[in-house]
Design a protein around this nucleic acid. Structure first.
Lengths: 329, 329
DNA sequence: CCTGAACATGTAATCGATTCCATATTGTGC
DNA sequence: GCACAATATGGAATCGATTACATGTTCAGG
């Protein structure tokens, strides 16, 4: 690989001069500049960001921790991140935690040892261990999708989104509402959304049968399975199901249709996330639009700010309820 | 940030000894090792991969160029890549070209200056300029999704996939078949798939009306628009549409349904890619399963091989036809 | 008691850039 | 013709690691 020294030798100058040409700093004679540029062109020399980073103590790289590399949710947030980072000359180094808490921490440490300038953390939990690791890390971090204490965070209004969605279901005349949630180690999705749902049911004095409360993973298949569970043991079927993600809702709805149920007449469905798919299943899925790209952009901007000036910011993103045919008719 | 020198000082040894402890190489007394480890623990010291890379001339980072950061296709391939890279201690540095050919080349050069150990290129074109840039780059490259001359490539059998799909449509009794393709600068998707379609139509002596050949971008919305185009100017409607991606097919099918057409009775649809969505639209979309994750894993493995031993390999992935309700009944 | 192997540790060069400082040359004003 | 500023260039330290080589100590065997 060609180095600055090779260029210096071939151009008959010192590497100091080559550096000056590269950075357009200090005095360089027109003659020397021309020679240097010509050699650079000829050799296809590219300065090592490696070496530069070591010297300048900044890498222009941002570490991005994602739970399961690419779900549609992660992807959309990543797109938002990239918009802003690219514009500011930063590149993204990926680290996927594969939903493993232990690995999540190891990935953070790995990013630290790579001396990334900052980290975007799409956390799936808020264990003490994670928070502890975060405190030890001497790199600015912005959490995305979860509100982590004492860490800059861009997050969603999960509680109120669930409330509003449940409220809408009740207003549409549903009363026997089932729920498909996820494990509560994921605070945003597992706890807050469930709480919003339960509080709303409570408020309206609606019964929530234990067999109507299901817990699943994030896959479509699990949504289907959860619905089966919900409907085997009992004679009375729910007349609506709120799932905490669109994928779960789609799986459940599919299962219902295969059972011969009419959607939305016999049973209604709603999800959260406004995935692409939600719009094109039949009937179109009622859901909550979370503006993931925007959240990504906001998180990126927030991180860039805290690179200049360390601080802790919080930003809660808005959302929009998308009323579609899976619920009302 | 704590450095190896700080550790050496505090432990009362030279940095050579610290390095020996870290890498478990050479002789270190039990006493010294204990002291060093204790200090490392206390300070939370993390060796700089930065500095290590400079010295060892390897970064353990792979550059990944994606067209539009995250479409489902890219995501699935990226997941496959990550599987293998993570297992081998490599991290992925992202670069998105935003479908801009000029930027695609700049991103490659940027990755080179970061001294990534290798590059996975998800190209969208095979311009001479791109090939030329590729030749100049002194980093092993594996192309993913396109077969680039003189470059190791993992690609799909786009031509035969299109042929088999078109063949299946004809066998299902369709004869007035429309086509929604993309720009031909994308050789795999734009040229090969179209060619497969046209050759098959030709073989069966079926007419292909100009207004039934549409070109679109990669969005669902464009699929819808293309279908509108296809059906406005003419009195006779096609009885089936082959779209080069599932998203285009979904958009077109949606437009047809809104027009009051019965799918698949009045008109059939087929796409390519086996996206999640294809299975859950109604009727389920006939498509070709491209095994993107596997392609990603294969590309990653291929790159790792060529890191050890420079070479040019080619690997064409298989595919599977998924016959679903959008076409036959 | 001497010798050589095994053990223990440190010095200094190196990777590829930037940058402070010193030095040399040229030009300008008086 | 001289002083001083502006211009041009290079030497060497630095960033944080690894590693070849040198040096010193300990211990066993003859």
């Amino acid at each position: 690989m060609v180095t600055i020294n090779d260029i210096a030798d071939k151009a008959g100058v010192s590497r100091t001069t080559v550096s000056r040409v590269l950075n357009e700093s200090g005095y360089v004679s027109e003659d020397a500049r021309k020679r240097v540029l010509r050699i650079i062109e000829e050799t296809g020399y590219r300065p090592s960001e490696q070496a530069k980073s070591l010297r300048l103590k900044r890498t222009k790289v941002i570490g991005v921790v994602l739970p399961k590399l690419f779900t549609e949710t992660s992807s959309r947030m990543a797109n938002g991140l990239d918009d802003v980072f690219q514009q500011n000359g930063y590149q993204m180094l990926l680290a996927s935690s594969n939903l493993d808490h232990e690995q999540e921490r190891r990935q953070l440490q790995l990013l630290e040892s790579r001396r990334v300038d900052g980290i975007i953390l799409t956390a799936t939990n808020r264990d003490d261990e994670l928070l502890h690791t975060l405190r030890d890390i001497r790199v600015p971090v912005v959490a995305l999708g979860q509100d982590l204490p004492e860490v800059s965070s861009v997050y969603f209004d999960d509680y109120h989104a669930a409330v509003e969605l449940a409220e809408h279901m009740v207003q549409s005349g549903r009363s026997r509402i089932g729920f498909i949630g996820v494990d509560e180690s994921d605070y945003a999705v597992g706890v807050l959304r469930r709480q919003g749902f339960l509080d709303t049911m409570n408020k309206h004095g609606l019964e929530v049968r234990p067999e109507w409360m299901q817990t699943a993973d994030f896959t479509i298949e699990c949504g289907r399975a959860a619905f089966e569970q919900m409907t085997t043991s009992t004679t009375e079927l729910p007349d609506a199901v709120l799932a905490v993600t669109d994928r779960l809702a789609v799986g459940a709805m599919q299962a219902a249709k295969e059972k011969g149920l009419q959607v939305p007449q016999d049973i209604g469905f709603a999800g959260i996330g406004a995935t692409d798919m939600s719009q094109y299943v039949t009937p179109a899925l009622t859901t909550v639009d979370y503006k993931y790209e925007e959240a990504g952009r906001e998180a990126a901007a927030m991180l860039l700010r805290s690179l200049k000036q360390p601080n802790v910011e919080k930003s809660r993103m808005g959302y929009g309820l998308l009323k579609r045919d899976s619920l009302s008719y």
